[in-house]
């Protein structure tokens, strides 16, 4: 299988604070990787390095044969193929749901406006929100907003999706609807890297679970291995607390 993401010796510091110390990771095409770990362990920072929302301090990141650390690469071009979903949804409040989705594909000339609207409608249908197309984000619930945010990211037809704690800002009763959409996406073979606190989701959907702590990948393996038989003391402690 093709390697979609290859990370080597990734380091990231904020001033004197070293958040990522030495991260090495490969993600294969169609693989669903869940990052778990205590807060402050560097999961989100790591995820944000993968589309360069954070500038790494050192190491290398190759996404689809594009070197993110190279000055010659057009980061905007690379980002078009990496969808991202944020904890706080970050929908554009001044645009309707439809315009939120249509904006980037049209502006980046991925498709004509007509095509983009078609695409947006079919995406809204798959996330069950077609009837909200003309509404503004503020009139939607958190779960609905997050589903629109997923549709918005998918409109660019990315081949990798990054999820940064997509359900952490949701009311409990809305977590399910968002996870459902993500599960379907995983089943369709999307390459996904998911930072999550939803251990149930990780156990059910992930091909690989990665436990991070203190800026390192401490342990990784299949959900059965990590949840069923964690080897590292820190993994055991963490899972004891959250499960």
């Amino acid at each position: 299988m093709m390697i979609k993401v290859k990370v080597e010796n990734l380091k990231k510091s904020f001033g004197p604070l070293e958040v990522l110390k030495d991260i090495n990771l490969e993600v294969k095409e169609g693989e669903v990787v869940c990052l778990i770990g205590p807060s402050g362990s560097g999961k989100s920072t790591f995820l944000r390095c993968l589309n360069k929302l954070e500038q790494p301090t050192g190491g290398s990141i190759i996404v689809d044969d594009h070197d993110l650390m190279s000055k010659d690469e057009d980061i905007n071009k690379i980002r078009e193929n990496i969808g991202m979903v944020f904890q706080q949804f970050n929908l554009f409040p001044h645009l309707s749901v439809l315009e939120n989705i249509v904006l980037a594909p049209v502006d980046r000339k991925r498709m004509s406006r007509d095509q983009a609207v078609e695409k947006a409608k079919s995406l809204l249908e798959t996330v069950g929100l077609l009837e909200k197309a003309m509404e503004y984000p503020s009139s939607l619930s958190g779960g609905q907003q997050q589903r629109v945010a997923i549709a918005r990211a998918l409109a660019m037809e990315p081949d990798i999706m990054l999820f940064d704690e997509p359900t952490s800002a949701l009311d409990p009763e809305m977590v399910g609807e968002v996870l459902e959409v993500m599960k379907r996406l995983a089943a369709q073979g999307m390459t996904m890297v998911v930072v999550t606190h939803e251990m149930g989701f990780a156990r059910e959907v992930a091909d690989r679970v990665i436990f991070m702590d203190g800026g390192y990948i401490v342990e990784q393996g299949t959900p059965e291995e990590v949840f069923g038989n964690p080897q590292n003391k820190r993994t055991q402690d963490f899972l004891n607390k959250v499960l």
Partner: peptide, 15 residues
């Protein structure tokens, strides 16, 4: 304006 707005826009590939 929340900096998440800029991040969301940039993550979609907008310059």
């Amino acid at each position: 304006i929340n900096k998440g707005q800029m991040e969301a826009a940039r993550s979609l590939g907008l310059p």
